[in-house]
Simulated scan of single mutants.
Amino acid sequence: MLPWIQLDTAKIPGGGELRLKSRGTEFSIMLGSNELMNSRLSGSEEALATLAMERLADRKRPHVLIGGLGMGFTLRAALAVLPQDARITVAELVPAVVEWAKGPMAEIYAGSLDDARVTVHVGDVGALIKSSKNVFDAILLDVDNGPDGLTREENDSLYSHDGIRKSRTALTRGGVLGVWSQGPDPRFTRRLKDCGYEVEEIPVRAGRTGRGKKHMIWMAKA
């Protein structure tokens, strides 16, 4: 078996370090001993986009905010189903992740960052949400391994009652908040309901072929 090769590291604002690794054509982004994403497992990240778009099928000129660029799986899935008049804003906290997308992982991204519908915002998705009112038809969050601040403690605020209310304010009426997680979290489900969302908990397999462990996706309608 081919060995893993570390290609680069990147500091996370506020603390912590990401590591980009490759093994042949496979890529992995690590935070300490935690694998945040792997290029061979994209099914649930793609489902985060497709499930949300199914719930917005009647929207004209939809505007979607994706929190976390990652390996671009959610972005590419959204581009595949959104109309040509749609807009996608991708908020990525770590500038190096954007550079990785244009450099060593460019083949995985398949030109998605060059699509005219896409704008990349290098900065904190939480701050962008906080400054927005009735702007986005969907907010899709995949910035941690679940509804807690794994990559950095500041992300906890995204999943608190206050953060959930701010997301609801940033959404248009009937908009959708989608959140990806490695597994279920009943407390987060309760917080979503407390804040007035209609909530669906949807287990999705990690792999594209319906294999692999089950991840959890919340679809919360404002």
Rank of each mutant, 00 (worst) to 15 (best):
M1N: 14
P3A: 01
P3F: 04
L7S: 04
G15S: 04
G16I: 01
E17Q: 14
R19F: 14
K21W: 14
S22A: 10
T25H: 13
T25S: 10
S28R: 07
I29H: 08
L31S: 07
L31Q: 13
L36R: 04
N38C: 13
S39A: 08
S44I: 03
A47E: 11
L48H: 05
A49Y: 01
A49K: 00
T50A: 06
L51A: 04
A52I: 04
E54W: 12
R55M: 09
K60H: 14
V64H: 01
I66V: 10
G70A: 05
M71N: 11
F73H: 10
F73M: 05
L75H: 07
R76W: 09
A77T: 07
A80Q: 15
V81S: 07
Q84W: 14
Q84F: 12
Q84G: 10
D85A: 03
A86M: 05
R87Q: 11
I88S: 00
I88K: 01
A91W: 02
L93C: 01
L93Y: 12
V94M: 01
V94H: 00
V94G: 02
P95D: 03
V97S: 03
E99G: 03
K102S: 09
M105T: 11
A106H: 15
A106C: 09
E107H: 14
E107V: 15
I108G: 02
I108L: 11
A110I: 02
D115N: 06
R117P: 09
R117L: 05
R117Q: 09
V118W: 06
T119V: 12
D124I: 01
V125H: 06
V125N: 06
G126A: 04
K130A: 15
N134L: 08
V135I: 12
D137S: 04
I139H: 00
L140I: 00
L141Y: 11
N145F: 10
N145L: 03
N145R: 08
P147L: 02
T151N: 05
E153R: 14
H161F: 12
D162V: 04
G163V: 01
I164D: 01
R165G: 07
S167M: 08
R168W: 11
A170V: 07
L171E: 00
L171P: 07
T172K: 12
R173N: 13
G174M: 03
G178S: 02
V179Q: 03
W180F: 10
S181P: 09
G183W: 14
P184C: 03
P184M: 01
R187K: 15
T189I: 08
T189N: 09
L192M: 08
G196H: 11
V199E: 08
V199Y: 10
E200F: 13
E200C: 05
P203E: 00
P203A: 02
V204H: 08
A206P: 10
A206F: 13
G207M: 05
R208A: 03
G212A: 03
K213Y: 15
K214C: 08
K214N: 13
K214T: 14
H215S: 02
H215D: 03
W218L: 00
W218M: 00
K221T: 09
A222K: 02
A222H: 05
